[in-house]
Amino acid sequence: MPRQQLDELAAEMTEFQAAQREQTRRARRGAERRRAAGAGPPIKLADADRELFPT
């Protein structure tokens, strides 16, 4: 797969994955977030890297 095509696919998946992750977290919490986004520890992997290397 060419690098450009992989980057485009990762960009598409990143948006969907972020929305899905937030929806799952909201369901687990039972309410909206109480702290501002980004208030926790720093993210170790970028979104695109998390898609390729899930933890």
Rank of each mutant, 00 (worst) to 15 (best):
P42L: 00
R33Y: 11
G30D: 11
D47N: 05
F16S: 15
E8H: 08
M13A: 15
F53H: 08
I43C: 02
R3K: 10
P54E: 00
Q5R: 00
L52I: 06
R50G: 04
A37D: 05
A46M: 01
Q5V: 07
R25C: 09
L9C: 05
I43V: 11
A11N: 13
L6G: 08
R3N: 06
L52P: 09
A11I: 15
D7M: 02
M1Q: 02
A36F: 06
E51Q: 13
E51G: 07
D7F: 06
L6H: 08
A36T: 11
P41E: 05
F53R: 02
R35A: 12
A10R: 12
A48S: 15
K44T: 12
G38I: 07
A36Y: 09
G40L: 03
D49S: 02
R34S: 03
A48M: 00
R3A: 02
F53N: 02
D7S: 04
F16W: 13
D47A: 05
G38Q: 11
L6W: 07
A27H: 10
E51V: 13
G30F: 11
Q5M: 06
A36W: 01
A19I: 13
P42E: 00
T55S: 08
E15I: 15
P41R: 05
Q20K: 13
E8W: 03
R29I: 13
T14Y: 03
A48K: 10
G40Y: 01
